[in-house]
Simulated scan of single mutants.
Amino acid sequence: MDSALVGGVIAAVIFVVICLLVVLIRYLYRHKGTYHTNEAKGTEFAENADAALKNDPNFQDAVDESKKEYFI
């Protein structure tokens, strides 16, 4: 009786692990190569960083011409 119970528990654990592996592999396959960036749209053609930030509506009030900082 005990061996049947142990065998059932082992079979259930193996089944759950296999199901989790299938779900994980399917998720990784479907989301392969997708990523999201927070870069502003249209800034890839700007001649420098200042021009790109001037056209970004999120930074219209934050850009002050007298105080520029550059981080390298």
Rank of each mutant, 00 (worst) to 15 (best):
G42N: 06
M1V: 12
D61E: 15
F15A: 15
D2R: 15
F45R: 13
G33A: 01
G7D: 06
V22M: 11
T37P: 01
A51D: 10
E47M: 10
A52F: 07
A49T: 08
K41Q: 13
K32E: 04
A12T: 11
D64L: 02
A52W: 07
N55Y: 06
A62H: 05
L21V: 15
D2H: 10
K32W: 06
D61Y: 02
R30F: 13
A46C: 15
S3V: 02
K68I: 13
L21P: 03
E65H: 02
G8T: 07
E44A: 14
D2L: 14
L24E: 06
P57D: 06
H36I: 03
D50E: 14
H31Y: 13
D56A: 08
V13N: 04
I14T: 11
D64P: 03
A52H: 05
Y35F: 14
E39C: 08
E44M: 11
K67N: 05
K54Q: 09
Y35I: 02
P57T: 07
E39W: 07
F15W: 15
V16Y: 08
G8K: 11
A46H: 01
V17E: 08
D56S: 09
V17L: 10
Y29S: 15
H31P: 00
A51Q: 14
M1A: 08
A40D: 06
A40H: 04
L5R: 12
V23N: 04
E44N: 11
N48K: 04
F71K: 14
L20Y: 01
A12W: 13
D2I: 14
Y27R: 03
L53I: 11
C19G: 15
L24C: 11
A40C: 15
L21Q: 11
E47V: 01
S3K: 11
T34D: 10
H36K: 12
P57G: 02
V13M: 12
V22D: 11
V23W: 10
A62Y: 07
Y35A: 05
A46M: 09
A51I: 12
L24D: 08
N58K: 13
V9W: 03
A49I: 02
Y29A: 13
Y35C: 10
